[in-house]
Structure formats: C-alpha cells, structure tokens
Amino acid sequence: MDGKVWLTLAAVVAVGLAIAAAVLLVRVFKARRLLLDAGIPLRDKALFWVAVIYTVSPVDLIPDPVYLDDIGVLMLALRSLHAAAASRSAKEPGTL
C-alpha cells in the first residue's frame, strides 16, 4: 500500500475515535442529572468534571488525533456515576 492509502485509513480511524469520544461526552453530560442528587459522593461529582475537562483539554496523555485516552476517562466517569446512582437507589427505594 502506498502512503495515501495509509493516510486515508488513519484519517478514518481518527474520525471514528473522535465520534466515539463525542458520543461518550454527550452521555456523561446526560448522566450529569445524577449529580443533582445530594447523596452522590463528592468523588463521583469531581470525576464528572475531571472527565469533561480532560476531554476538551488540549493536554492529553496521547496526542489528540487518537482519542483512546479521552474515551477511557469518559467511560470511567460514566461507570462511576451509574454505580453511585445504583448504590444510592438500592439504599433508598423510591429515589432516582
């Protein structure tokens, strides 16, 4: 394969990863309503903001054309928020 094919393939992968990161960022913002409940621990609230700031920040562990680190941070935030909400609703039926 020549260089043009590799460049096109790399561009397609980069766009796919950027779309995945954007979708996860939207899901994190949708999960933000879970933060409105005062019973959600501060750690989970802070993780939400860290994930958002890390995703939009130009400073990354891996350069921005590769969104794998951003996706990982967003997935961690989503998992943490949903786990906190689930444990909160399990403790107090009728909430959330």
Results as ranks from 00 to 15, higher is better:
residue 33 R to T: 11
residue 5 V to N: 04
residue 52 V to D: 12
residue 74 L to Y: 04
residue 73 V to M: 15
residue 27 R to A: 11
residue 60 D to Q: 14
residue 15 V to D: 15
residue 23 V to A: 12
residue 73 V to I: 15
residue 23 V to H: 07
residue 41 P to I: 09
residue 46 A to N: 05
residue 37 D to L: 07
residue 86 A to G: 13
residue 95 T to F: 08
residue 81 L to P: 08
residue 85 A to H: 11
residue 26 V to K: 02
residue 60 D to N: 14
residue 75 M to A: 12
residue 64 D to Y: 10
residue 79 R to A: 15
residue 42 L to R: 13
residue 89 S to I: 03
residue 21 A to F: 09
residue 18 A to N: 11
residue 14 A to L: 00
residue 55 T to G: 08
residue 67 Y to M: 08
residue 73 V to H: 09
residue 11 A to Q: 03
residue 72 G to A: 12
residue 13 V to E: 10
residue 76 L to K: 07
residue 62 I to T: 06
residue 67 Y to C: 05
residue 75 M to H: 01
residue 16 G to H: 00
residue 47 L to S: 04
residue 69 D to C: 00
residue 84 A to P: 04
residue 43 R to P: 01
residue 94 G to C: 07
residue 59 V to L: 15
residue 5 V to G: 02
residue 88 R to M: 13
residue 79 R to W: 15
residue 16 G to S: 08
residue 38 A to M: 04
residue 49 W to M: 10
residue 54 Y to Q: 03
residue 63 P to N: 09
residue 45 K to E: 11
residue 26 V to Q: 01
residue 7 L to S: 14
residue 28 V to Q: 05
residue 36 L to F: 13
residue 56 V to A: 13
residue 87 S to V: 03
residue 89 S to M: 10
residue 36 L to T: 08
residue 9 L to P: 07
residue 57 S to D: 14
residue 9 L to M: 13
residue 59 V to I: 15
residue 8 T to Q: 13
residue 93 P to A: 04
residue 78 L to K: 06
residue 10 A to R: 07
residue 23 V to Y: 08
residue 12 V to E: 12
residue 87 S to W: 01
residue 83 A to E: 11
residue 73 V to D: 08
residue 87 S to A: 12
residue 40 I to L: 10
residue 15 V to I: 15
residue 10 A to I: 02
residue 68 L to T: 15
residue 45 K to A: 11
residue 80 S to T: 11
residue 6 W to T: 02
residue 45 K to M: 09
residue 42 L to F: 12
residue 9 L to S: 13
residue 47 L to P: 00
residue 72 G to F: 09
residue 68 L to I: 15
residue 59 V to N: 09
residue 17 L to Y: 06
residue 43 R to H: 10
residue 86 A to L: 13
residue 12 V to M: 04
residue 58 P to M: 04
residue 21 A to E: 15
residue 21 A to M: 13
residue 10 A to M: 06
residue 69 D to W: 07
residue 14 A to I: 01
residue 89 S to Y: 03
residue 11 A to M: 05
residue 47 L to A: 12
residue 33 R to V: 10
residue 92 E to S: 12
residue 86 A to E: 15
residue 8 T to Y: 09
residue 27 R to T: 07
residue 19 I to R: 11
residue 23 V to G: 03
residue 71 I to G: 09
residue 18 A to E: 11
residue 65 P to W: 06
residue 6 W to P: 00
residue 72 G to M: 05
residue 65 P to K: 00
residue 34 L to R: 08
residue 3 G to T: 12
residue 88 R to G: 04
residue 49 W to R: 12
residue 20 A to L: 06
residue 80 S to E: 08
residue 51 A to M: 08
residue 54 Y to F: 07
residue 65 P to A: 05
residue 55 T to M: 03
residue 69 D to H: 08
residue 45 K to H: 12
residue 75 M to F: 07
residue 43 R to M: 07
residue 35 L to W: 01
residue 26 V to N: 01
residue 1 M to R: 11
residue 13 V to R: 05
residue 96 L to A: 06
residue 11 A to H: 01
residue 69 D to K: 01
residue 24 L to D: 13
residue 25 L to G: 10
residue 39 G to A: 14
residue 51 A to T: 06
residue 13 V to Y: 05
residue 19 I to D: 08
residue 93 P to F: 03
residue 13 V to Q: 02
residue 70 D to H: 09
residue 44 D to S: 14
residue 63 P to Y: 03
residue 52 V to W: 14
residue 44 D to M: 09
residue 49 W to D: 09
residue 16 G to D: 02
residue 55 T to V: 02
residue 20 A to M: 02
residue 90 A to P: 00
residue 52 V to N: 10
residue 82 H to I: 00
residue 43 R to Q: 14
